[in-house]
Design a protein around this nucleic acid. Sequence first.
RNA 1: AGGCACGUAGCUCAGUGGGAGAGCGCUACCUUGACACGGUAGAGGUCGGCGGUUCAAUCCCGCCCGUGCCUACCA
Length: 902
Amino acid sequence: MPTRGGQEGRLLALGRMSAGDLAKAYIPRDIEETWAQAWLDRRVFEADPARDGPPFSIVIPPPNITGQLHLGHALNNTLQDVLVRWRRMAGDNVVWIPGTDHASIATQNVVERKLAAEGLDRHGLGREAFLERTFEWKEEVAPYIVSQLKRLGAGCDWSRERFTMDEGLSQAVREVFVRLWEDGLIYRGRRMINWCCRCGTALSDIEVEHRETQGSLWHLRYPLADGSGEVVVATTRPETMLGDTAVAVHPDDPRWRALIGQKIRLPVLGREIPIIADESVDQEFGSGAVKITPAHDPSDFEMGSRHGLEAPVVIDESGRMTLEAGPYAGLDRVECRAQLVAAFEADGTLLEVKPHTHAVGTCYRCHEIVEPMPSLQWFVRAKPLADPAIEAVREGRTRFHPEHWTKTYYAWLENIRDWCISRQLWWGHRIPAWYCEACGDEHIVVARETPSACPRCGAGLRQDEDVLDTWFSSALWPFSTLGWPEQTADLKRWYPTAVLVTGFDILFFWVARMMMMGLRFTGEVPFRDVYVHGLVRDEYGAKMSKSKGNVQDPLELLAIYGTDALRFTLMSQSAMGRDIRLSTQRIEGNRAFANKIWNASRFVLMKIGEPDPDAASAVACEDAAGRWIRSRLSVAAAEVSLALTEYRFNDASSAIYRFFWNEYCDWYLELAKLSLRSEDAARRAATRRTLVEVLETALRLLHPMMPFITEELAGKLPGASGAPLVESAWPDSGVLTSDPEAEAKVERLIAVVRAVRNIRAETGVAPSREVDLLISCADDAVWRDLTDFQDEIRALARLGVLERWTAAAPPAGAAPAVVAGIELHVPLVGIVDVAATLEKTAREIEKARAELLKVEAKLGREDFIARAPEEIVEKERERAAELVAKLDVLESALGRLGGVGA
RNA sequence: AGGCACGUAGCUCAGUGGGAGAGCGCUACCUUGACACGGUAGAGGUCGGCGGUUCAAUCCCGCCCGUGCCUACCA
């Protein structure tokens, strides 16, 4: 095991060997690598379908092989790892399947850039060689991604690692394609698609991002063919006018009704085009007349097909004007617009230009403006797949967390359009369709096995050049990774998967499509739960992006603060439905938490040198403090378990944080220090036992969130079995018991100590100075409980005398406090200026009076008494009585203070 | 245009139909044999605004303002 040598000679000299192992501060890098490797060596993450326990499976959202991981991946995989480690400890048969995604456009872009740097391009290289280069890239990058995940602590089953283009997954893709084709759910056709001129490929609708852009609205005069007048049309894209084949108006529009059926002479080209009537024209917009360019606008395309219009293509796939553009042929679309506008300005065709904001479609990968155009592509008929996907969520077979994402999910699926799946790229799954060289393109052969000849005429076949949308294969991920289409043991055991953890940005791209494909091909949902987390933003709430330069490298943060601190921070910020603003201050805070855990453990290890007497007497000697901390632990364990069950990661982390720091460290360790000084050996032994057991259990509760430090520390505790914590059992609430009686006692102790400390601090008693405490309480049992703790109260509040005060009046010259119905008096005459005490007491009275006023006002309202539930009314009455009693004590003490001061 | 989130302490964020919370920061004090990546105590909020429901609203409802995101064929 990794250890720290160094300046611990002092401790070693005292014979505390175990504590001597620990450095004074936690240094993460000393242990992280060692444990990451140790887990792998023990193969603890390697799953076996034959193992017992309820199945719990997760498939990783496969990172793209485009480069390194970012903080979004760190968040995503931390949450999965927390779930996986937790469920494994809880006894489930767990598998977490890792892998990477080939990401066709993105990866092809990366490799093409690399080629360009070498002065090469893919066309010069040829398809074969290009693919070879890209596979080389993949072989280089995928292991690097895996290594980053391992550094994060991700407990994936690396023996099951997959790649979307490996043999098995490629076979699944082909199987799905062929079946969909056979079922008539895949077709090839000429449709309006989105074309990225830079990437040189078709895109699906959701790969187009709509950006609000400040543009212009050009109003153009279109003369009537007979010269009797003109029609004004407005356009955001003047260059498309070269492809206009009609002007449309609303049939009811009084301004234009008379012109329907007449002809327009199109400027520049002189073509005569009709004025047509169509219901879809918005009379309110512009002049109410709209130019129709069927080949370059989706809605115009539809209108064109309704009216049987020609659709001349004037912009080609590279963004240049075609021969159809007449004098403008060969120009780039941007240049063409500039020249056209200039010409229209000159000849008066341009009536006016108005600023106009509209949503311009851009490519989600390269952000180039997307060109709508009709094109021969492959499509998936989406509706028959979407309907069962909607149904499954409606019936609760898959649930979203937070639940509100279901609405977004429905909204998209209910209005889904056919999915363009062909991409004019080389990197990806090639479409398993062949065309007969003799029969022509109309004869399409779609097959699982590559056919050698045309089954109809025996002539040669040519495979479709295109590849499939990456998301087509991603959609199969939950079952393809488990071995589908084979009915493997993995598939039977772990499908459907338990939960998908992902970001909302790929809800449509990925989640919805996995639902569609999963249901279609397995008959079951791909996952029971979907946990949708937020985006990791910078501390000012901005999206992290390379162009903004605010990207933080998780590996760097890991190195500075430690993996556990980063993980814990990401987790504690993961409240349902919120983005995460990551600030280094916050990570620092959790590094401090790790250090706290380290030092608490260091303390415990220092104190357990003494040999233990028999366990039985130690159990019998458990004191109230020990019972209290065990009880608090049981509460914390229950909270953590429940929170994880409900994907409330932030609540799980804060429950254990609070317990460890504010209860175990702040109070139990301090109490234990005292009982360890006891004369009673059995009591000392009981305390040591509790210190260790509670610490060990807390480390187990923490392990899914902070795997490294907990593993390291647990291994140093006595009684460690030699098996790592990752293989230990989740603290079962059945074993831990709550103890309300002990809780009440210790809470009273804490309240008394705090009250005295408050008086000391506020009246300015020097920290080293002892004060006396007089306690007035009517209840003998309460007094007995307090005297049981008298040594503790004395030590923690720095007291001299601690006595019961039985006189009717409060002692003169003492600062009063009332907590939990107990009167406390700290005589301060001769210790501090009476004025300070007077002032503090007056402030307390002020506060109590204000509160009493509120409560009395409430109790004074008849409606409240009559209509509020009885227990609420009763509670308010008790509160009022308490406040009255408290005020009584404070005021009377104040009076006696005044006397002293005079 | 529609939809969905969000607006709580200086900052980042939890939270609940009945007495406002955390972390960080801030103030004062403390090198107490686990920890200064620490300890003790404290200051700080009309819970975005206006209405409504209710005995009671930071929480439920409506409207408004502000912020972010998503969807959409208004040229």
